[in-house]
Every structure is written in C-alpha cells, then in structure tokens.
C-alpha cells in the first residue's frame, strides 16, 4: 500500500489543477456570455473582424 504515498498527492493535485482552471476561466469572464461563446467557437479564423481578433487575450474588463 506504499503506492498511496504518491497516488494520493497525485489525485489531489490533479483535482486542484482542475479547480484552478475553473477559477481562471471564471476570472476571465468565460461564463458571462454563454450564447455568444457558442457561436464564437465556430467562427472561421479568416473572417475574424478586427475587434473580435484583438479580444483573444483575456482582459481585465469583461463585457457587462
């Protein structure tokens, strides 16, 4: 049962990683516009309008 010594921390850190990812996605406002996000995903890259293109990077000021 010595395997627990590294399996348990591994399981916990994987879980924490998921929690961290969730918190990050929440902070960057990814749940603010669920309807819009569904469509942004299928937008062809070569049609990205200038403003939408700029917005790839997370900003500190999510849409209202």
């Amino acid at each position: 049962m010595e395997v627990l010594i590294y399996l348990v921390p591994l399981a916990l850190s994987l879980g924490l990683l998921g929690l961290g990812a969730f918190m990050w996605s929440l902070k960057t406002g990814q749940y603010d516009d669920l309807d819009g996000a569904a469509w942004r995903a299928i937008l062809d890259d070569d049609q990205i309008p200038p403003a939408a293109g700029q917005k790839k990077a997370p900003t500190s000021s999510p849409a209202p």
Partner: peptide
C-alpha cells in the same frame, strides 16, 4: 477604439 465586445446573452 481599443475594445469592442458584444454580449449575445444580455
């Protein structure tokens, strides 16, 4: 204009 973001939900 540095940022223009539409929110379809709201």
């Amino acid at each position: 204009v540095t940022h223009a973001r539409a929110n379809l939900t709201s």
